[in-house]
Structure formats: structure tokens, C-alpha cells
Amino acid sequence: MRVKQISVFLENKAGRLWELTETLREKELNIRALSLADTSDFGILRMIVNRPEEAFDALKEKGFAAAVTEVLAVEVPDRPGGLAGVLKALNDDGVNVEYMYAFVEKKAGNAAVVIRVEEVERSVSVLAAAGVTILPADEVYNL
């Protein structure tokens, strides 16, 4: 159920983002989903790649401050109100979503989103009860 996400600390300076992607290219790692959160002087790049452990090691070796975080990937019906439905289930149960972002690829007509919550365990049961499909890690890495 849990998907390993790689987060990387990035200073806001020219070329860093490129160096990071270059590192992934060298290892032939494929980015499945990504989001960049930034403040005035630093940012955090979060991404799902096909081989997270390998990506983490490669980035560390290149001197990036990286971390592995566990997130959930859920299927969202690709129609108006699809995401709202998923979030309603979490909201009704008082689960706080820290951040979320979408996958590039779709799966059988449905969109997929990454959701980061504090209480992973509880979220899984809340979502399951609401009939939301949570994507297994293996499937996510190869989306």
C-alpha cells in the first residue's frame, strides 16, 4: 500500500534541478510523478520514481540531502468532483492532508494522485471504507 517517495532539499540556485535529473538519468531512473514546493530561498522536490532505493543512494552519493517518505497513491475518477470525493472521505474522518500531487500517467481512464497524510494507517482504512482504490507500490513505480 505504502509508496516510497523521494524528497530532495534544493537551494534556489541555477542548475540544481538539472543536476538532480541528470543524476537520475545516469542511473536510468524514471520519474513517475513529481512536485516542487518552494519558498523564497529553498525548495523541496518530491517525486515517485521506478526504483526509489536506488534513486536515494544515487542522490546521496551526489551530495543531495534526500529523504524517503511514505505516501499513498490513490485512484481518482477522471471527472469533475472525482478528487473532491476522495478528499471528502478523509475530511469527514478528520484526516489532515499535508500535500498531494498528480501522476503523469493515467490508469484505465482514472487519474492517480499522491497523498501525504500523517496518519497513514487510519487513512488507508478510511479510504478503503469509502471505496477508493489505493494503488499498490509495485504498480505505482511502473505506472
Binding site: 524528497s7 532539499f9 514546493a37 519558498t39 529553498f42 523541496i44 518530491r46 540531502a65 534526500a66 517518505t69
Partner: peptide, 15 residues
């Protein structure tokens, strides 16, 4: 320098 000890995935924590 932000190293593994203090790096957090959350912007809020770093701030």
C-alpha cells in the same frame, strides 16, 4: 548546511 539529520520532507519543519 542541511544534512540528513535535519532534512525534513515538510517545508514547515525546515522553516
Amino acid at each position: 548546511e542541511v544534512d540528513e539529520n535535519v532534512f525534513s520532507d515538510e517545508i514547515r519543519r525546515l522553516q
